[in-house]
Amino acid sequence: MAKSPKVRNPLSVLADDPQGRSLGLDLPPGGLIDRPGRRGWWRESEPLLWVSDEAVGAGALTAYRSPALAAAGLQAVLLQGRGGLERWWQDRELVPDRMSDPGDHHVEPVLREFWGRVVPDPEEGAGEEGDELIAPFGRDWPGLAERGPDGGPDPETAACELADELIVGGILPGPRLALVPAARGADVPTAMGWGGPTNFENDTALISAVLRSWEDRFGARVVALGFDELHMSVAAPPRTSAHALPVAAEHFALSPDNIWQGSGSIRAYADEAVTGCGHWGFWWD
């Protein structure tokens, strides 16, 4: 049987065209980061992502995130360093070969399993305090939230606007522009081999499966990644507390530190960080 031809990595064009003119871009100075792994005469290096040399400012995603770029198989996002890990994407923190395919996972079984991990266990002394944390839900998985309301802004416009807000507001004080080969934005963490949730889940494809569902249900888009944090824009967030509660339960299942070390309860989190919020941020301790 004839061997299938190797699919060309869409980043390969930047080796000979560093400004991305053939993709309709005018990229700032930057460079390719190779996929980690052993190298030798029998195996060519393969680019994993492209990252700008310097920080970018407001307007960066608007300038470089386009349908043409997505059609070429690339997604533009921001990468944010932190103290001591200013360039974590260059420090062998990315492990793409460890990840499965997001398409092999379904959102509801994933969230149900995550929920089972994080709900307080009464046998470990959680008691009434644990019940209050997850109220109005019980210890059984409450199911997926309904999709967001119609009539919101264009999701890509919302993503670019949020990026500017996060940069100007200092939440992303010096982000780099990154281009990642991925069919959709939700798959970027997996395609990169991002390990932000490692202390919670080693296979980031499970995270991407949830992000895909949020893209579809709420017009959410991945805007920025930090060493252990993720920022998403949301074009169609819940508008009522009743709708926000099951969404908050999904957030708790995916990123329990948002509540354990943040709002303190699903009810409080739904009011503070979900209802009408166009920015969903997640972090893993």
Rank of each mutant, 00 (worst) to 15 (best):
K3C: 03
S4Y: 10
P5K: 10
N9A: 02
P10I: 03
P10V: 00
A15I: 06
P18G: 00
L23W: 07
G24W: 09
D26Q: 14
L32R: 02
I33G: 00
D34Y: 03
P36W: 06
R38G: 15
R39Q: 13
G40K: 06
W42D: 15
S45W: 08
P47G: 12
S52R: 10
D53I: 09
E54D: 15
G59D: 04
G59C: 06
A60G: 01
S66W: 07
S66K: 14
S66E: 07
A68S: 15
A70Y: 06
A70P: 01
A70C: 08
A71W: 00
A71H: 01
A72R: 11
Q75G: 11
A76H: 04
L78A: 00
E86L: 12
W88Q: 03
Q90N: 12
E93R: 13
L94S: 10
D97V: 00
P109Q: 00
R112F: 09
W115F: 07
V119W: 03
P122C: 12
E123I: 04
G125Y: 11
E128H: 01
E129H: 09
E129G: 14
E132F: 02
E132W: 01
G138K: 02
G138C: 12
D140R: 02
G143T: 00
G143P: 00
L144F: 02
A145D: 03
R147E: 01
P155H: 08
T157N: 12
A163L: 13
D164F: 12
L166I: 00
G169S: 15
G170S: 12
P173Q: 10
V180S: 05
A183P: 05
T190H: 14
G193H: 09
G195P: 01
P197I: 05
N199M: 14
N199P: 13
D203P: 13
T204N: 12
T204Q: 12
A205T: 04
A209K: 09
S213W: 09
E215M: 08
R221W: 09
L230N: 06
M232E: 07
T240L: 07
A242K: 15
H243T: 14
A249T: 01
A253P: 01
I259C: 11
I259W: 12
G262F: 06
S263M: 07
S265T: 15
A268L: 15
Y269W: 13
A270L: 05
A273Y: 06
V274D: 09
G276H: 12
G276I: 03
W280G: 10
G281Q: 13
F282H: 08
